[in-house]
Amino acid sequence: MDRDTSIDELLEIMARLRDPRSGCPWDLEQTFATILPYTLEEAYEVAEAIEKADMPALRDELGDLLLQVVFHARMAEEEGLFDFDQVARSICDKMIRRHPHVFGDVDLAGPDAVLANWERIKADERTSKRDESADGVLSGVAQALPALLRAEKLQRRAARVGFDWDAVDGVLDKVAEELDECRATLDERMPHAERVHEVGDLLFSCVNLARHLGVDAEQALRAANHRFESRFAKVESGLRERGLAPSVETREEMERLWEHAKRDET
């Protein structure tokens, strides 16, 4: 089956599912808002397949994510807003516009120059779209982004106009400062809201550190989560071999098995 036929079939399937007379009751009752959690979930499942280097899973998950695009486009078409072809046309136009060194006569030397030009074009696009009441360096960074990713985008926006640390040493000092301020909230008289505030500042400064080290904070934390899961699974396995289970009473054994699991990774 060729590419156009495959896309056409998928669009026809979604149209049938949303047919008011003979469609699927579940699909028919969905809205942009109710489908949104599934769209986000599918995007994360794509990320997980990539992290695991599981190409068959990646193929399937990309299909699931494509279905989400088709679903949203179909609902928009029903409301007379736009259709799938307009979605595809929009991204085609955007990619051509943002790659003048490929589709035009702009000469850019190397990936860094390409990225800088890409960011300049995006900034120009944002300026043309927003109204004066929404004008600002940080305008347009989506509120729905994961917090770590949004923090990094906000920091990058500010850095483009010179509001940034000159060197990573300053960021390290800031992380240490925020950690000390978190430690100060251990005072039992400290309001809980203040603890939330200081922990937020600490996390924001850690994202800043990751950015200056050239590390994607969101991916780094996802990788740390995977390591924790893998190590703890080994702890549970070691306990089962001894006829034990995770509990307060087996904490010392859990810590010993944890260290053993860490050594196995090196």
Rank of each mutant, 00 (worst) to 15 (best):
A47R: 10
E48Y: 11
A49Y: 00
A49S: 14
I50Y: 03
E51P: 08
E51G: 15
E51S: 14
K52M: 10
K52W: 02
A53F: 07
D54T: 08
P56M: 06
A57L: 01
L58P: 00
R59K: 11
D60W: 01
E61Q: 12
E61A: 06
E61T: 05
L62R: 00
G63S: 08
D64Q: 00
L65C: 11
L65K: 03
L66M: 13
L66F: 11
L67I: 06
L67G: 08
V69P: 01
V70M: 02
V70H: 01
V70C: 06
F71P: 03
F71K: 13
R74P: 01
M75K: 01
M75P: 00
A76I: 01
E77K: 07
E78T: 00
G80P: 07
L81P: 01
L81N: 06
F82W: 04
F82K: 02
F82M: 08
F82R: 03
F82L: 08
D83N: 15
D83I: 09
F84N: 01
F84M: 10
V87W: 01
V87C: 03
A88D: 13
A88Q: 14
S90Y: 07
I91S: 15
C92D: 13
C92E: 14
D93I: 12
K94L: 10
I96F: 07
I96A: 10
H99S: 15
H99W: 03
P100A: 07
P100D: 06
P100E: 06
V102R: 13
F103E: 07
F103A: 05
F103P: 05
F103N: 10
G104H: 05
G104S: 12
D105T: 14
D105Q: 08
D105F: 01
V106R: 11
D107S: 13
L108K: 07
A109K: 14
P111K: 04
P111A: 11
D112N: 09
D112I: 05
A113G: 12
A113P: 09
V114C: 06
V114P: 01
A116L: 13
W118Y: 13
W118K: 04
E119D: 15
E119S: 15
E119G: 12
E119F: 11
I121D: 00
I121C: 08
A123K: 13
A123W: 05
E125R: 03
R126F: 07
D131G: 10
D131E: 06
D131P: 00
D131W: 03
D131T: 09
S133V: 10
S133H: 10
A134E: 15
A134N: 14
A134C: 14
